[in-house]
Amino acid sequence: MNLIAIDIGGTTIKIATWINQKLKMAFTIDTPDNLDTFYEELTDAVNEIKANHNIDGVAISSPGAVNKATGVIEGASALPYIHNFKIVPELEKRFGLPVSIENDANCAALAEIADGAAKGCSSMAFLVIGTGVGGSIIINNQIWHGAHLYGGEFGFMIIDGKQLSELASPVTMAKRYNKKTGKDFDGKTVFELADTDDPIAQEEREKFLHALAVAIFNIQHSFDPEKIIIGGGISQNPELVPLLDDEIAKLINKIKVTTIKPILDICTLKNEANLRGAVADFEKEH
């Protein structure tokens, strides 16, 4: 099956081909600021590729809560013009091809289970740690969207009276540190400062790790996935998984009613994940 894969981002849109089971970047375009230009530029891109390849469909990764049953991108994102109407049939009409759309975090999870850190698993949880905390759940090789399309929205978890996104985001960790110190450091710097004799950095990193460990413990014992994969910029810090393993071990030793230790891993596909996952989603849907 030959496909065009599209990853819609707030700033740029990536466009690739999936031919002979290989993903190849074609080009990127600036994300338009209105629906008419969005339609026009995507249609031009699809037609350009169709002129040179026999294409069977278009696989799209998108922000927002994608309702597969209705073809509507619900929720909200930095691109308000793509939401709350039946966009799938509109795109199919313009492209002259079948179209699938899935949420970008769900696409990243599908990519990791198809060709990444969770390959060979039939279940996994995917945590995306950035400005907030998001993610995805896959059960029996299928995305668990949930009754209200909130499956995998781990950032809404309440831990110690606060949302996980407040406690386990590098951005909010840095904000807490900067408020106490008057500095202007990012999360990466604060995380690394905790390895020095900076007690405030150590305190804030411990809050971050504890909240994330509690969330991982709860996910493991609620859904019991084979693996829990971590994405986002901070996932590339080699200390993250060992530190989380230690924090989770403390929880297990304290609670004593379970011996299940979550298997943590880091996402591997990075910049290609949303495109590869969009392909996997199309293949499941069509």
Score class of each variant (00 low, 15 high):
A109Y: 06
A109H: 05
A109E: 04
A109K: 06
L110W: 08
A111K: 09
I113H: 02
A114Q: 13
D115R: 13
A117Q: 07
A117M: 04
C121F: 01
C121G: 04
A125N: 09
F126I: 04
L127W: 03
L127D: 03
V128E: 01
V128Y: 10
V133W: 11
S136A: 15
I137D: 02
I137R: 03
N141Q: 14
I143E: 09
H145F: 08
H145L: 10
A147D: 12
L149R: 07
G152A: 06
E153Y: 09
K162D: 12
L164P: 09
A168I: 05
S169K: 06
P170G: 09
P170A: 10
V171W: 12
M173H: 07
K183L: 11
F185D: 12
F185L: 15
D186P: 03
G187W: 05
K188E: 14
D195T: 10
T196M: 04
D197T: 14
P199W: 04
I200Q: 06
E206F: 01
E206C: 00
L209N: 05
A213N: 04
A215Y: 09
I216N: 03
F217H: 13
H221D: 08
S222D: 00
D224R: 00
G231T: 07
G232L: 07
N237P: 01
E239W: 00
V241A: 01
V241R: 09
P242T: 05
L243K: 13
L244V: 03
L244E: 05
I248P: 01
I248H: 05
I248K: 08
K250S: 09
L251K: 05
N253W: 00
